[in-house]
Amino acid sequence: MGRLYEQLSLDERCEIARLRGSGSSIRQIAAALDRQPSSISRELKRNTGSGPRAGAYKPTYAQAQTAARRWSGARLERDEALREQVLTGLRRGWSPEQVSGRLRLEEGRPVIGCETIYRFIYAQLKRTNDGAWRFYLPRAKARRGRRGHKGGSPASFIQQRVGLAERPAEALTRDQPGHWEADFMLFSTYGQSVLVLHERTTRLTALVKTATRKAKPTAKTLGGLLEALPKRLKQSVTFDNGTEFAEHHSLGLATYFCDPHAPWQKGGVENAIGRIRRFLPRKTNLDDVSPARIIAVAQAYNHTPRQCLDFHTPAEAFSRVLHFERESTSRPSPG
C-alpha cells in the first residue's frame, strides 16, 4: 500500500531551513524529518527565492506559497455563470437572501447561501477599494450593522385615534390579507415626498409621488389607491403619528396608529421604504423623476422574490389572493 502524503507543516519547513543553512544534504534532511528525499527536493526547488535571494529557503514564504497554490478563490470568483446569475439579481434590487431563495425555488435545491453572497460583496469592497460594490446591496451599506433612528410623535393632535393594541390579531399575524400600512418617503429637497401603501400579508406596495403632505389630500390619495379593491381586501390601515394622517377617519375603514415614538411597529412599510431607497435615494430630486419612473420602481419592488413568501414575489402573492377573492364572490348561490 502506498504511503499517504501529508503537507509539510510550518515547523517542518523551519527545520528544513535550519538544516539546509547548516549544510545538510537533501537525504540528511529527509532522514531527520522522516520524509522522502523527493519531497524535500521538490520543496526546496519550488520555494527557493530568486535573484539576490537565490538559494535561500524561507519557511514562512514557503508556507504562504503553499496556501496560495491550494486556495481556489471564493465560489463566486470561480463560478462565472453563477456569479453572473447572482449579480443580475442584485442589480435588479434583490437582496442576497432573495437571490439565494429564488435560485433555490427555481432549481428545486439549495444553490448558494446568502451569507456567501454577502461575504463576496464585502470582500470585493475591501479587496478592490471600490465603493461601487456596495450598491449591489439593497441599502448600499459599506459596513454591516444597524443604524440608530430618532423621531417625535404629535399623537395628541390626531382625533379619533385608535392605538395599535386594538388592531385585530389577524393583522398582527398576517394571516388575513387586506390589512395595510402607509407612510411617506421624504427627500432632501423640502416638500418632496412619495406616499407608500403596503399590504401586510402579500407585501404588495404602491407608490405615489405627492405634491403635498397635508391631511386631506393624503386621505384622498389613499382612498383612490384602495377604491378599486374588493371590500374584504380593505380591512384596515396602520399609520405612524404624523399629522398628515389626521383625516384617517374619512377612508371608511378601520385605522390604527403606532405607539408614540415607535414607528417601527409598522415594520412592513418601514422595511419596504428601506428597500426602495436603493432606487430613490434621499438625495433624489423628484422634479426629475417622472410618474412612469415611480411606477417602474413599484413594479421592480413587487416583482422581487421575498423570503417571507417562500421566494415568490408580492405581485404573485397578491394575484393569488385577488383571484381567490374573485372566485369566492362569483360562485352562484345554492338554489
Rank of each mutant, 00 (worst) to 15 (best):
Lys209Asp: 01
Ser193Gln: 07
Arg203Asp: 10
Val194Pro: 05
Leu195Ser: 04
Leu197Met: 09
Gly191Leu: 04
Val208Met: 06
Gly191Asn: 10
Arg200Leu: 09
Thr218Tyr: 10
Leu197Asp: 03
Tyr190Leu: 13
Gly191Gln: 10
Ala219Gly: 06
Ala219Cys: 02
Leu207Ile: 00
Lys216Tyr: 15
Lys214Phe: 15
Thr205Ser: 03
Tyr190Ala: 14
Ala215His: 01
Arg200Ile: 01
Lys209Ser: 12
Arg213Leu: 02
Ser193Ala: 14
Val208Asp: 06
Thr201Asp: 08
Lys216Glu: 14
Arg213Asn: 05
Ala219Pro: 08
Arg203Lys: 13
Lys216Met: 15
Leu204Lys: 01
Lys216Pro: 11
Leu204Gly: 02
Thr205Ala: 08
Leu195Met: 06
Thr202Asp: 07
Arg200Asn: 11
Thr202Tyr: 04
Tyr190Trp: 12
Lys214Glu: 15
Arg203Cys: 08
Ala215Asn: 02
Lys214Arg: 15
Ala206Tyr: 06
Thr218Ala: 10
Ala206Ser: 09
Gln192Asp: 00
Thr210Arg: 07
Arg200Ala: 02
Thr202Leu: 08
Ala215Val: 15
Leu204Glu: 03
Arg200Phe: 06
Leu207Met: 07
Lys209Gly: 06
Thr205Phe: 07
Gln192Met: 11
Val196Leu: 02
Leu197Tyr: 03
Ala206Val: 11
Leu207Asp: 07
Ser193Glu: 01
Ala206Gln: 11
Ala211Leu: 15
Thr202Cys: 02
His198Ser: 00
Thr201Lys: 01
Leu197Ile: 10
Arg200Tyr: 04
Tyr190Arg: 13
Thr210Pro: 00
Leu207Glu: 01
Lys214Asp: 15
Lys214Ile: 12
Leu204Ser: 06
Val194Glu: 10
Gly191Cys: 02
Tyr190Asn: 14
Glu199Leu: 06
Thr218Gly: 02
Leu207Cys: 12
Val196Gly: 00
Pro217Tyr: 15
Thr212Cys: 13
His198Gln: 04
Arg200His: 03
Val194His: 10
Arg200Met: 02
Leu197Lys: 08
Thr202Lys: 01
Ala211Asn: 13
Val196Glu: 04
Thr202Ala: 05
Ala219Ile: 07
Thr218Phe: 04
Arg213Ile: 12
Thr205Lys: 09
Leu197Asn: 03
Leu195Glu: 03
Lys216Gln: 15
Thr210Gln: 09
Ala206Gly: 03
Arg203His: 05
Tyr190Phe: 10
Leu195Tyr: 07
Thr201Pro: 07
Val194Ile: 12
Ala211His: 13
Leu197Arg: 06
Lys216Cys: 11
Lys214Gly: 11
Thr205His: 05
Arg200Glu: 09
Lys209Thr: 03
Pro217Ala: 11
Leu204Phe: 07
Pro217Gln: 10
Arg200Lys: 05
Glu199Lys: 00
Gly191Tyr: 10
Val196Asp: 06
Val194Gln: 01
Thr201Ala: 03
Thr210Trp: 13
Ala211Ser: 14
Ser193Lys: 04
Arg203Phe: 03
Glu199Thr: 13
Thr212His: 12
Ala219Glu: 09
Thr201Gln: 08
Ala215Lys: 09
Val208Cys: 05
Pro217Thr: 14
Ala206Pro: 06
Thr202Ile: 13
Lys209Met: 08
Ser193Val: 09
